[in-house]
Structures are given as structure tokens and as C-alpha cells.
Amino acid sequence: MAMNKKERLQFSLLILAALGLATAIALFALRKNVSYFFTPQQVQELRQLDDARVKEGYVFRLGGLVKQGSLEKTSDDLLIKFIVTDELRDQKVEYKGIAPDLFREGQGVVATGSLKGDVFVATVLLAKHDEKYTPPELAKEMKKLHSEKTGKPDDKKAGKPE
């Protein structure tokens, strides 16, 4: 290439700007498909639009927090029922299998499965943790402070919906 320094600089910057723009447009077009899961609110919206991705029997992932007080153990040891919430909408979930260690009320989860009526029947259940790292004593202390302030015992929420 018989280009001098200035021409090379202009040419490269032009190419890079074009590539950046192309990627931005592509990502914008993909924004709905790149998400790893739908929140209950998004599921609700997609259902209203009759979107094929959340039709009954179609497999997708649902993510959110396990609602406080919603976890039910059944007579079948492996079957659990709970509600996944994004604090806007709730979604009933059933899962048969061994839940990950971090699975508990207030904790984030991502479940793979499909809708059967109003219930999301999960085949895979993954725990999602938040970005906060705290030693156990401090977490206990914070919990105590929180319950003193609100007057409610043990009502600490694990995090906000992302």
C-alpha cells in the first residue's frame, strides 16, 4: 500500500468508525435475543404480544428472585414449587430435581423450562448470585441493623432485580 502516515491514520480511523457503527447497529438489533433469560415482567409482555418464544410448551429461560415465603416443599421429595418475581410481576414455577446450594428464598435464580398453563415447569435450575461480597459476621450485623430499623425480623431482601 503506497499510503503515507497521514493517509494510513485517516483510512484506519474511518474503517474503525464504520466497524464500530456496524457492530452497534447489529447489537441493537440483537438486543432481545442476546439476553440469557426473560424476567416475569418480560414474559408477561411477550405473552400479550403472542410471541412464539414464550408460547405454551416452548422452552425458554426465566430469571428473577425467589419470592420470600413462596417456597413449598411437596410430598414428592424432589418436587418444589415457588414463585419467581422481579418485584413487578410474579411467575409460578415448579421444579423437579436437585436445586443448587445457593437456592433459597430471596436468592436469584435462572430456570430453563416452558409454560404449562400459568405454571412455568423448569427442567434446569441455576442459582444467580449478586455482586456483593461480605463476610458472614458483617452480613449478620447488617441483617440485625436492618430488622431493628424496620421492626420486622428477618425480612432482608437479597438484592434487587437486575
Binding site: S35, F38, G63, H129, D130, E131, E162
Partner: peptide
């Protein structure tokens, strides 16, 4: 930040 991911956000 842009998409729902299983990985947690930056700490």
C-alpha cells in the same frame, strides 16, 4: 449491564 446474564454485574 446491557443484557440479562447469569454472571453478576461488576463489583
Amino acid at each position: 449491564d446491557w443484557w440479562n446474564t447469569l454472571h453478576q454485574p461488576a463489583s
